[in-house]
Write a protein that binds this DNA or RNA. Sequence first.
DNA 1: GCCGGTAGTAAACATCCGCTGACATACAAT
DNA 2: ATTGTATGTCAGCGGATGTTTACTACCGGC
Lengths: 213, 213
Amino acid sequence: MTASPAGVDPPATCEDAPAQRRRRDAGRTRQVLLEAARTRFARDGYAATTVRDIAEEAGVNVALINRYFTNKEGLFEACLTTAVTDVRRDENGVPVDGIAEGIARRIGGAADDDRLRVALLLLLRSSGDDRVDELRRSVLHAVSEKMATAAGGADPDDAALLRAQIVLATTLGIVTLRSSLGLQPLASATEQQLLDPLRDLVQAVLPGAGTPS
Amino acid sequence: MTASPAGVDPPATCEDAPAQRRRRDAGRTRQVLLEAARTRFARDGYAATTVRDIAEEAGVNVALINRYFTNKEGLFEACLTTAVTDVRRDENGVPVDGIAEGIARRIGGAADDDRLRVALLLLLRSSGDDRVDELRRSVLHAVSEKMATAAGGADPDDAALLRAQIVLATTLGIVTLRSSLGLQPLASATEQQLLDPLRDLVQAVLPGAGTPS
DNA sequence: GCCGGTAGTAAACATCCGCTGACATACAAT
DNA sequence: ATTGTATGTCAGCGGATGTTTACTACCGGC
C-alpha cells in the first residue's frame, strides 16, 4: 500500500490546487473532456476530430467519453450546449447600444475572450444530427432577433431581421477568416482596427442603430 | 461477341447525346467524379465525405478516384482548383462598379449560378493539407485585393484591404448561413431583398465605392 | 479493517475508411 | 480478326474509428 506498484505520484506532496485535488473526480474529468472537445470540434470540425484525439488532449481514457456523454454525438451536443450558454451570457452582459463595439470586442478582444470565439465557431460546426442542427439554428436566430431589437425597437419585421442576420453573417465570417484561414491583414487586425469599419457597417446596415459617440 | 454476356445495352439504340456516347470515356468520368466531389465536399466538408459516397453519387467505381486523382486529397485539390477558376472567371465578368449588386447576384441569384456558391463554400473547407490551405488563402486574398482596388483605386493599403475583407467575410458568412444552416429569413431571401442591405453595407464599409444609381 | 460503489483502465470488437493489385472488358490501330 | 492499351471492376488489405466489455484501483462510510 505504501509503495503502490503503478502509482506515478505517491501522496507525499499534495497538489498545487487550493484544496487537495482528488485523483478521481468525475465532475472534473467531465469538465476537462468538455474543454478539450470544445477546442477540437471548433478548430477541426466534428468529423475530423476523433474521440481518441480528445481523450489524449484531455489526458483521460477514451472510454470515459462514452461513460460521461454516451457517445461522440453526445459529447458534441454537450459542447454546443456550453457554447449556447456562453453566447447567451455574453448577450446579457453587453449594453444595448454600441453593437459595433460589442462585435469588435468579441472578435478581436483579449485572449480571455477566446472562449466566446470558440463558442461562435462551434455554432458553425455540424455533426449531421438534425436535432443538434436545430439547436444551432434556434440560437443564431435568437441572436439575430436580439440584435434587431436592440437596433430598431421591439418586434422587428422580416426586413429588420434580415439586416441583423447580415451583420451576424459578417461577425461569423470574420471569425472564420481569422481563425480558420488566417487571412491577412484581417487575421492580425486588432480590436481597435476592426472598430472603425464595423461601426460604419453596423450604422449603415441596421436601421436606427444609434451612434453612441 | 454479338451478344456480350454481361452487356446491359447492346449498341442497337444510340445514346441521346449529340454524338454517340462512348461507354468508356476517361475525360467524362473524370468530370462526373469532379462534379460529385465538389457538391459533397462543399456541403459536408472534407472529413465527413467518403470516397465511396462520391463514387456512388457519380455512378462510378471507387477505384477510379485513385486512378484519376491519385488519392482523396488529390481529388479535393482538383475540386479547389475548379473553384478557383470559377471565382476568377466570375471576377472578370463583373463590372467594376456595383459591388453590392454583384454580391447579391452571386449569393441569391438564379439556380444556374449555383456553381459559384459551391465554389465559395469549397474555399471555406479545409482538408488539413497546408499546401492546399495556402491556395485557399491566396485566392481569397486576391479577391479582397480586387474588391479593394475596385472600390478605392489602385494599390490599396492595409486599412482598405481590411475593409474589403470584412465585406468578403459578409459574403461568405451569408452563403454559409443560407446553405449550411438555413437560417430564416436570410436563407429564403431573394436577390432583390438582399440588395438593399448589401448596398448600404458596401457603400458604408468600402471607401469610395460609387453609388451607381 | 473492510467493503460497496464509483472512477478509471486495458483490450478488444465490429465497422468503416482509403487505397491497392490482379483481373476483365471495351476501344482503336493494324 | 488480332492485338495492345486504355478503361473499368472486384475483392481485399492494413489501419483507424467509435464503442463495449471485463477488469482494476480508489474513495468514503461502516
